[in-house]
Design a protein around this nucleic acid. Structure first.
Length: 448
DNA sequence: TCTGGGGTCCTTCGGCGC
DNA sequence: TCTGGCGCCGAAGGACCC
């Protein structure tokens, strides 16, 4: 396609009716909501082990310099007062469903991008003539239902709507009228454009391209030579506000998997084979939950020096048979030729098929599908709280003292706070687990 | 105590059939 | 028969996002 044609491509929408909603520091905000003693305090949610990284930092922690994707150790040094919490995905999903359902009242066309983000096509609903009013209203309702702040951006395209919600954060609403689009877009750093990460930004920097305005001055052929055909065409168009992507409920999942970074690197055939088994268990559990089977199994290995490689095995037909998939995972892992110390192992399933054959077991001895494996890593197992299964932030219950959450556990001594969404902040208290056993319990769902 | 874990999409390369 | 080109597919790696 020639540049003139690209720059001329139909500008489908004329009105600012694409809405982008994004919950502010979502994981940390849910934790502060469910744990009243943490409101107003810095919170870091993420891996709590020696190699953990930050998933979300509350605004209080950000003020101290903590950021997502930063190693947890660094974030703690920057924000020593922060509460460090293990993620509670069940709780986040429940809040997410509530937010998505509320957005669904604006239009049938809701496209979730992630657990805390979605596009809404207001053109497909009754509020196309009053986007700002609809957004103000929906923000208030989400706040009322969940206690969470959601930033909203509205524009003529997905790009503008997304950038507008970013610009509105925290707790903001920004409508970019079509006439104001260039004033809004041109001064932005290219790094703000979704899809331009560190590598692409560095390549553009070599062309002296730092802002969207700089980007717009670049000829199409220079862009495609610099960042590749597909991205080049895409950037050429986005810089001109041309973004015809429709709001569409997302399609089927293309892969499922699991991976684990070990607290310490592991080595030796037996240890590695056992680790492949465990990560395959988790990947299989998710494949089962997703339903159906897979034809390709990919093993991923990261060595001590952080070099990463993948090897895959593709079967003749898709299968949901755990034994076959497990064998393929081991075969792929062996193909990776593991000899050095291994930092991470991953197993994922691709070429998914909804209706793969699951040959029914002939005998009753066959492995049952384990849903809650107490031996598995992670917080999945519910039951009595111990030093081994304790993670800071998890929900617990005591027979008489009620619901609360784990601060930490040392030996048989547990530090907990008995509080939840609607209670006043609670002081932490120390219990002897032998005298006062605590049960790990699933999160309480927000009221519908 | 550098560098998680869930994904998606794109590029490149080699093999194969036509 | 040889060779080149094209399209397709699978494999591997990399960039990116939240």
């Amino acid at each position: 396609m020639d540049p003139a044609q690209l720059a001329d491509a139909s500008r489908l929408r004329t009105r600012a009716t694409v809405l982008h909603a994004d919950a502010d520091s979502f994981f940390a905000a849910v934790e502060q909501r469910d744990k009243p003693s943490l409101r107003g305090r810095p919170v870091l949610v993420g891996g709590t082990g020696p190699r953990g990284v930050v998933s979300t930092a509350s605004y209080e922690a950000r003020r101290a310099g903590a950021r997502s994707a930063m190693s947890m150790s660094r974030a703690r040094r920057l924000s020593p007062a922060a509460a460090v919490l293990f993620p509670r995905f069940e709780a986040y999903s429940a809040y997410s469903r509530l937010i998505m359902a509320t957005l669904g009242t604006l239009s049938e066309l809701v496209e979730p991008l992630s657990i805390d983000e979605a596009f809404v096509d207001l053109e497909a609903g009754p509020f196309a003539d009053d986007p700002a009013g609809a957004a103000t209203d929906v923000r208030a309702r989400i706040r009322e239902l969940t206690g969470l702040a959601v930033s909203i951006g509205i524009g003529r395209t997905k790009l503008v709507a997304k950038l507008a919600s970013d610009a509105g954060k925290p707790d903001g609403l920004l409508v970019v009228a079509p006439a104001d689009e260039d004033d809004f877009l041109l001064p932005l750093p290219v790094r703000a454009v979704p899809g331009i990460g560190p590598a692409t930004a560095a390549a553009l920097e070599r062309l002296d391209v730092r802002t969207v305005a700089d980007l717009r001055r670049q000829p199409l052929d220079i862009l495609t030579m610099t960042v590749g055909e597909s991205s080049g065409v895409n950037l050429f168009r986005l810089a001109r506000g041309i973004d015809p992507r429709p709001v569409a409920p997302s399609g089927e999942r293309k892969s499922v998997g699991a991976e684990r970074t070990f607290a310490q690197d592991i080595f030796g055939t037996d240890l590695i084979a056992a680790a492949v088994d465990r990560v395959t268990d988790e990947a299989l559990r998710r494949l089962t939950a997703h339903g159906g089977g897979a034809r390709t199994v990919v093993a991923k290995v990261r060595f001590a020096d952080f070099t990463t490689l993948t090897r895959s095995v593709t079967l003749a037909q898709p299968t949901a048979e755990p034994a076959e998939l497990r064998a393929a995972a081991h075969q792929a892992a062996r193909a990776a030729g593991i000899s050095d110390s291994v930092r991470l192992l991953g197993v994922s399933f691709h070429n998914l098929s909804a209706h793969a054959q699951l040959t029914l077991p002939w005998d009753d001895e066959a492995d049952p599908i384990v849903l809650d494996d107490p031996a598995a890593d992670g917080p999945v197992a519910f039951g009595l709280l111990t030093e081994e299964n304790a993670r800071p932030g998890l929900d617990i219950e005591h027979d008489t003292l009620g619901r609360g959450w784990v601060v930490h556990v040392r030996g048989r001594e547990a530090t907990v706070r008995f509080e939840s969404v609607d209670t006043p902040p609670a002081r932490s208290q120390v219990l002897d687990l032998d005298a006062d056993p605590l049960r790990l319990v699933p999160p309480l769902h927000p009221e519908m």
